[in-house]
């Protein structure tokens, strides 16, 4: 028996918004310690890694490890039926071919149940090595989304350049060029407004606008985003999911431009 109950059901709705444009389907690996999801987008350019720890759930039970292959378009349709303040429970029998979503209104007066068919997915699991990154940049997630959106008007790629002074985002195309520099912030009233650069070596890498913009669909999950970069390795874009876990997007840098 698998059962995971989340009083803050809106988090699960936001997680779905953060992955559904990138992935058509994905396997949810449910184990004693929590739920993991790892999947590449259709073009195999980026990788999504989602981690939801059992401690973050209000109730979590997983007697045996189960892998639930889900069509994310279908799951997204179902989660759209949950209100933002609903309590969401996911449950499945050990060898079931369906998963059930239960939505309870806060006052328990409305309870909705949706059963969804599971899929057998044959997806490659990739081992992501522990990496020491040369540059780790923390910035407000809304600011990062705004920068990606603004720069995508100029070209298909964004150059991210990190030095000890701060971080620079640039794009160039037919209409001209754009450069946005963010300096490290001094003292800020709210921690989430800070721009923090932890740099060992300066790094400049070029990434696809299209994918960065898809990652920013996770913005509602967290006020801050963390970018980790090293030369010639994938960028990591990480959003914390409340106290429950995180979503990380890995994106291969562009080469040869």
């Amino acid at each position: 028996m698998f059962e995971a109950r989340l009083v803050q059901g809106s988090l699960l709705k936001k997680v779905m918004e953060a992955i559904k444009d990138l992935l058509n389907e994905a396997s949810f690996d449910c184990a004693h310690s929590g739920i993991l999801l790892q999947a590449m987008d259709n073009s195999h350019v980026s990788l999504v890694s989602l981690n939801l720890r059992k401690e973050g759930f209000d109730k979590y039970r997983c007697d045996r490890n189960i892998v639930m292959g889900m069509n994310l378009t279908s799951m997204s349709k179902i989660l759209k039926c949950a209100s933002n303040d609903d309590i969401i429970t996911m449950k499945a029998q050990d060898s079931a071919d369906t998963v059930t979503f239960v939505f309870e209104s806060p006052n328990q007066e409305k309870v909705s149940e949706y059963e969804m068919k599971l899929m057998n997915l044959d997806q490659d699991q990739l081992g992501i090595p522990e990496t020491e990154y040369c540059c780790i940049i923390k910035l407000p997630s809304g600011e990062f989304a705004r920068i990606c959106r603004d720069l995508s008007q100029f070209g298909e790629s964004i150059v991210i350049s990190c030095t000890k002074e701060g971080v620079k985002f640039s794009a160039a195309g037919d209409i001209g060029t754009a450069n946005i520099k963010l300096a490290q912030t001094g003292t800020v009233d709210k921690e989430e407004d800070a721009v923090i650069v932890d740099m060992q070596e300066p790094v400049t890498l070029t990434f696809s606008c299209k994918y960065l913009n898809m990652f920013t669909k996770a913005t509602p999950l967290s006020p801050q985003v963390c970018l980790s970069m090293s030369p010639d390795v994938p960028l990591v874009v990480e959003y914390k999911i409340g106290e429950i876990g995180h979503i990380r997007y890995y994106l291969a840098p562009r080469i040869g431009d």
Partner: peptide, 14 residues
């Protein structure tokens, strides 16, 4: 102009 590398060229299958 530029080429996009695949993500699975960086990580090994497990």
């Amino acid at each position: 102009p530029f080429q996009q590398r695949k993500i699975n060229s960086f990580f090994r299958k497990v």
